[in-house]
Design a binder for these strands. Structure first.
Lengths: 160, 160
DNA sequence: TTGATTGTGGGTTTTGAGCCCAATAGGATG
DNA sequence: CATCCTATTGGGCTCAAAACCCACAATCAA
């Protein structure tokens, strides 16, 4: 993970009639490489994520390495959550996309239904530290309600 | 916490049609840095808070810096979904804002609905010792009614 | 080949944030 | 009481970003 980045910020955008979204320029800036390319992944229903290509690759490699190591040392039995996470990651369908004019993303066929947002409706663009996420408003509210109470403990734990 | 500050005071202001509020000059003075920047945070529905960037940093950015460092040194490999989740919550919870003319705050998109005060209506600006709070009148009354009875005991306890 | 549909790259319009200044109000001062 | 000063507020101007619109290319089907 190219660690210098830590993306935060929140913005509302609307999907135009051709399934395009304009990302906030700062986010587009950090997420895309010099050709304007990045990785679009299905995160969960109602949510897509955008990654720097290098980070995405690293994420997969690291995950694989981690699991291999655990299998070898016979520690797999108690860590099914990691296996699950990896499986999810690998089976998550993703593809490379390019941002037109450095900031306009066309949501490809196959990802549209997954996002569950109809044309000419709003999405939330959210910085998630290591990636940028695109949420349907409904899923976003749901996730907030679910995760907000965990904020304190999680912050304490991760920064310990 | 830069301990020399202890903000008190109360004022009524109205949010203008461009979502601007003018802070009492004494408060604006103490919470903003030399560039007029400070941190705006979502406190609870109906209440926003303003912090000196330096103080906020003590609370949050130190932790973020630590997490960044952990990411860089590869100590977050198995925690990426948690990092994502945390980043997401950080994104919605706060952002840095700058005060125009040293005292006028533009309430950003995303914080407006949270405050629940329509344009051209009043808010209460309240000094809360270490930060400045912006309350919707309804939430303010509610909080007062809730907290007032505790004031005596609390004051006695804290000043003992 | 033709026409419809979708992707792509512009351009233009509109919106909103930042900045500035003017008008008002109210307090302090001489 | 007259004057000055400063805090607050309202509104205008400008610029950049976002939304909107259109023209063209590519693809595919009839």
């Amino acid at each position: 993970m190219s660690g210098e980045i830590f993306i935060t910020g929140e913005a509302k955008r609307t999907i135009d009639d051709r399934f395009r979204v304009t990302l906030p320029s700062e986010m587009a800036e950090v997420i895309s490489d010099s050709d304007g390319n990045c990785i679009l992944a299905k995160e969960r229903s109602g949510c897509l994520s955008l990654w720097r290509a290098a980070d995405w690759q690293k994420r997969i490699d690291d995950g694989v390495a981690l699991i291999k190591q655990k299998i070898q040392t016979g520690r797999m039995e108690s860590r099914w959550s990691d296996v699950q996470r990896l499986g999810r990651m690998l089976s998550t369908r993703y593809r490379t996309v390019s941002l037109a004019n450095r900031s306009r993303l066309l949501i490809p066929e196959g990802f549209r239904e997954f996002l569950e947002v109809p044309v000419n409706h709003d999405v939330m663009i959210v910085g998630a530290a290591i990636c940028v996420e695109i949420w349907s408003p409904a899923a976003w509210l749901e996730a907030l309600r679910e995760d907000m109470p965990k904020f304190g403990p999680l912050f304490t734990e991760l920064s310990a």
